[in-house]
Write a protein that binds this DNA or RNA. Structure first.
Length: 673
DNA sequence: GAGCACTGC
C-alpha cells in the first residue's frame, strides 16, 4: 500500500497527542469563527492537522446535535479513507460508527456516523438525492486549492445552498495562499450586488501555522538546454557533495523518467570506488502497485535513493526521507480544444504554487534543498497558479450533472472561475446531439436524467441506454466498464514485445477493440479471478479488471433502478456474428461523433476530413485494415493525434442513428456522407 | 510503424 499524504504516520510529530499539534492552540478562535460566520477559510500546510482535528473540534463543540453530520471532502479516494482511519483511531471508535467514510464502491458509514469523509465527486452525487444536503451541519472542502472540477463545482453548489440554508457552515481548506480568492467568491452575490455595501460579513480567514523545516532554494545561473540531462548531472553533484538524504526528481512523463533511470544506473558505475552508491527508481501512475512500492522501501546501507517521478509525487504520493528535490520546472497538463473536441497533453511550465509544493517535498522530516533547473528570472515569470481544470476540460459530463441538480441556466451558474464560453457551447451541443437536452437546453426525460445518473461519460451513457433496443445490454455493460478503465487493461511490458502481441491476439476480435475488451472481461471472470497467474501470464492488469467488475455491477444496479432489466443469460452465448454487429451498431448510436475513415496509408481522417488520426499502438486497428470506424477516445500527444478503442462500422449506420448530426455536417462541411 | 500527466462518480 502506498504511503500517502495523509497517511504519513511515520512522521514523529503526528504521534504527539493531538493537543500538541500546532492546530490545537487555534481551537478556540477556529470555533468562534465557525460559530460567527457561515464561511471559514482555513489556510494550513500539510501536517498542520487540519483534516483530522477540525472535524473533531466541531463535533465536540456540538455541531452534530440533532443527528447532523459533519462532511469532509477530499479530492482523492485514498485521502478520504486514510484520514477517516486516523480520526477513528483518535476518537477511539470503530471505523464506520461515529467516524466513517464513503467513496465509490465503499460506504463505511452507519446511522451513528457523525463525521463522514468522502470524495468531493460523491458529495455532488448526494446532492442529486438531497439537493440542500440537509443531513450536514458543516461541509469542509479540503485541498480546495488544487482546483479540481469537482471541488470547484461543489463550492458553487454550497454557495447556492447557503442562501436556502443560512445555518449551514462551510469550511474551505487550502494549503496555499489562495484564501482571499475563496473568501471573495463567497462574499460576492451576483444576484443582489446592491447588498454588498455594508452587508454582513460572510466569512473570515484563519491561518494555522504549519510544521515544516527550512528549505534552501537554488536556481540555475543560465537556462539548461536539456533538463533531463541537467537533472542527471545535478543528481550526481548532490550525491558527491551533499550530505545524506534521498533525492526526488520531478520530470514530466514516462519516457523521460525511463531514460533518466537508465542513464543514472549506467553512469553510477563510474563513481569513484568505495563511494556510496546511487539507486535510481521510477515513479509514475502507469506502473503497477507493486512496481510503485519500491520507492517506499528504505535504501540499503551506503546507498542513496533517487526517485524520478511525474507530478504524482507533488500531491498524491508522499515519500519520507527526501532531503533534496530537483525540479525540472515543467508538468504535463491536459487541455481540451472545443473546436476539434481533442484533448492535448503538453509539457507546460509549472506555476509558482506547484514549484512551492514540489520544494516542500524536501522539508518534511528535516531541513532540505530544492534545485530548480531554471533561472530565478524564469521563476518570476511563472504564473501564480495553474489554470483551473474547469477551464481546460470537456464539460459535457458536468453540465449534465448541473442540469440534473436543477440548475437549468448553467451559463449563469456561480463558478469560482467561469469556463470559457466555447467549452460550455461545445458541451451543450454534444448533449443536444445525444438527446440529453432539448431545443431549449432542458434535460430530457427520461433519457437526459438517466444519462446524468449513470457514472459514465455522456456518449457511453447514451450507448448503454440504447443497448436494450439492440439486444446487447449485457455486452455493452461490460464494454462500458472496460473502456472506463482508460487504457489500463494491459500492463506495460517492454521486454518481449512479440510475446505480448501474440498473447493479446488470443483475445482479438475481427470487429475491433470493443469486442476484444468484451472477450478479455469474459475470460477474466470465468478463469482469471481464480487463477492467480492468469493476469500475469496474459499481461493483464488484475487491479483494473477487478475494478471493471465493480463498475459493471454498479452500472447494472443503476439500470435496474430505472426499471431496465439485464438479461445475463445471453452473455455466455458468446459473440456470434449477429451479436457482434448489434454491439457495433449500438456503439454507433452513442459514438457517432467519434467516427473516422481509414486511408490507404493506414491513417484515419475524421468525418470533416481535416484531421489526420492515428490508431494508438494499443489498438488492434494499429495493424489492420478497415473502412469506417468509431472510437472511444481521441487525444494528442507529441504532435500526433491518436484514437484508442476503435471498432469497425458501416458508413450508413452513422446516417441511420444520427441523421440530424450528419445532415447538417455533411451539407456545410463535407460531401462524403 | 510505435506509445497518456493526475484524479473521480
Amino acid at each position: 500500500m502506498a504511503e500517502l499524504d495523509l497517511g504519513a504516520s511515520f512522521i514523529p510529530a503526528l504521534h504527539k497527542p493531538a493537543a500538541l499539534l500546532p492546530i490545537a492552540k487555534h481551537r478556540e478562535s477556529l470555533l468562534y469563527l465557525v460559530e460567527t460566520y457561515p464561511v471559514t477559510i482555513v489556510v494550513g500546510q500539510t501536517g498542520s492537522g487540519k483534516s483530522t482535528q477540525i472535524p473533531q473540534f466541531l463535533e465536540q463543540a456540538g455541531w452534530c446535535a440533532d443527528w447532523k453530520v459533519i462532511a469532509v471532502t477530499q479530492p482523492r479516494r485514498v485521502a478520504a479513507t486514510t484520514v477517516a482511519v486516523r480520526v477513528a483511531e483518535e476518537v477511539g471508535c470503530e471505523l464506520g460508527k461515529e467516524v466513517g467514510y464513503s467513496i465509490r464502491f465503499e460506504d463505511v458509514t452507519s446511522a451513528t456516523t457523525r463525521i463522514k469523509f468522502l470524495t468531493d465527486g460523491l458529495l455532488i452525487r448526494e446532492a442529486l438525492v438531497d439537493p440542500l444536503l440537509t443531513r450536514y451541519s458543516v461541509v469542509m472542502v479540503d485541498e480546495a486549492h488544487e482546483r479540481s472540477i469537482s471541488s470547484d463545482i461543489l463550492l458553487g453548489l454550497l454557495k447556492k445552498i447557503r442562501k436556502r440554508r443560512p445555518e449551514l457552515r462551510i469550511i474551505v481548506s487550502s494549503a496555499t495562499l489562495q484564501a482571499e480568492e475563496f473568501l471573495r467568491f463567497f462574499s460576492e452575490d451576483a444576484d443582489e450586488p446592491t447588498l454588498q455595501n455594508g452587508a454582513e460579513k460572510v466569512g473570515s480567514i484563519i491561518s494555522l501555522e504549519g510544521r515544516t523545516y527550512p528549505i534552501d532554494i537554488l536556481y540555475l545561473e543560465s537556462p539548461a538546454e536539456d533538463y533531463v540531462e541537467k537533472a542527471i548531472s545535478t543528481v550526481f553533484d548532490i550525491h558527491t557533495s551533499e550530505q545524506t538524504g534521498d533525492i526526488l526528481v520531478f520530470l514530466t512523463g514516462r519516457e523521460e523518467i525511463e531514460n533518466a533511470v537508465q542513464a543514472v544506473s549506467e553512469r553510477s558505475s563510474q563513481l569513484p570506488p568505495h563511494s556510496k552508491s546511487l539507486l535510481p527508481m521510477p515513479l509514475f501512475a502507469g506502473l503497477t502497485t507493486e512496481q510503485q512500492m519500491y520507492v517506499f522501501d528504505e535504501a540499503p546501507e551506503n546507498t542513496r535513493k533517487v526517485i524520478f517521478s511525474t507530478n504524482i509525487a507533488e500531491a498524491s504520493v508522499t515519500i519520507n526521507g527526501i532531503a533534496y528535490v530537483v525540479d525540472c520546472g515543467f508538468v504535463k497538463l491536459r487541455t481540451y480544444n472545443p473546436k476539434t473536441g481533442i484533448e492535448t497533453l503538453t509539457a507546460t511550465p509549472v506555476s509558482k504554487a506547484s514549484a512551492a509544493q514540489r520544494a516542500g517535498r524536501a522539508g518534511r522530516t528535516k531541513p532540505g534543498k530544492c534545485f530548480r533547473l531554471y533561472t530565478e528570472d524564469a521563476y518570476r515569470a511563472l504564473t501564480d497558479t495553474n489554470v483551473p481544470e474547469i477551464q481546460r476540460s470537456n464539460l459535457a459530463p458536468f453540465i449534465l450533472q448541473l442540469k440534473a441538480l436543477g440548475i437549468d441556466n448553467v451559463v449563469r451558474f456561480d463558478f469560482l472561475t467561469p469556463p470559457p464560453a466555447e467549452l460550455m457551447i461545445k458541451a451543450l451541443e454534444l448533449l443536444y446531439s445525444l438527446g440529453a437536452v432539448d431545443d431549449y437546453a432542458k434535460l430530457t426525460k427520461p433519457l437526459g436524467t438517466r444519462m446524468a445518473e449513470l457514472a459514465v461519460e455522456p456518449m457511453m451513457a447514451k450507448t448503454l441506454l440504447s443497448a436494450p433496443s439492440f439486444g446487447c445490454l449485457s455486452e455493452i455493460l461490460t464494454i462500458a466498464a472496460m473502456t472506463s478503465l482508460g487504457g489500463n487493461v494491459w500492463v506495460q511490458q517492454d521486454e518481449d514485445k512479440k510475446r505480448v502481441e501474440s498473447t493479446r491476439r488470443k483475445f482479438a476480435a475481427e470487429e475491433g477493440d470493443h469486442i476484444t475488451l468484451l472477450n478479455v472481461y469474459q475470460t477474466f471472470v470465468t478463469k482469471g479471478r481464480k487463477e492467480g497467474r492468469f493476469c500475469h501470464d496474459n499481461f493483464l492488469n488484475f487491479k483494473a479488471l477487478t475494478r471493471a467488475v465493480s463498475i459493471r455491477a454498479q452500472l447494472k444496479r443503476y439500470l435496474e433502478r430505472f426499471g431496465i432489466s439485464v438479461d445475463e443469460s445471453l452473455a455466455s452465448a458468446g459473440t456470434q456474428n449477429n451479436k457482434a454487429e448489434q454491439i457495433c451498431r449500438c456503439l454507433t448510436a452513442g459514438y457517432f461523433a467519434h467516427a473516422a475513415r481509414m486511408q490507404p496509408d493506414g491513417t484515419f481522417r475524421n468525418v470533416s476530413g481535416g484531421t489526420v488520426l492515428h490508431a494508438h499502438p494499443s489498438s488492434l486497428m494499429f495493424n489492420r485494415k478497415a473502412d469506417w470506424v468509431i472510437f472511444h477516445e481521441v487525444f494528442e500527444t507529441g504532435n500526433k493525434i491518436y484514437i484508442r478503442d476503435v471498432s469497425k462500422i458501416e458508413k450508413n449506420w452513422l446516417l441511420e442513428y444520427a441523421p440530424e448530426y450528419y445532415q447538417t455536417k455533411s451539407r456545410s462541411v463535407h460531401g462524403e456522407l
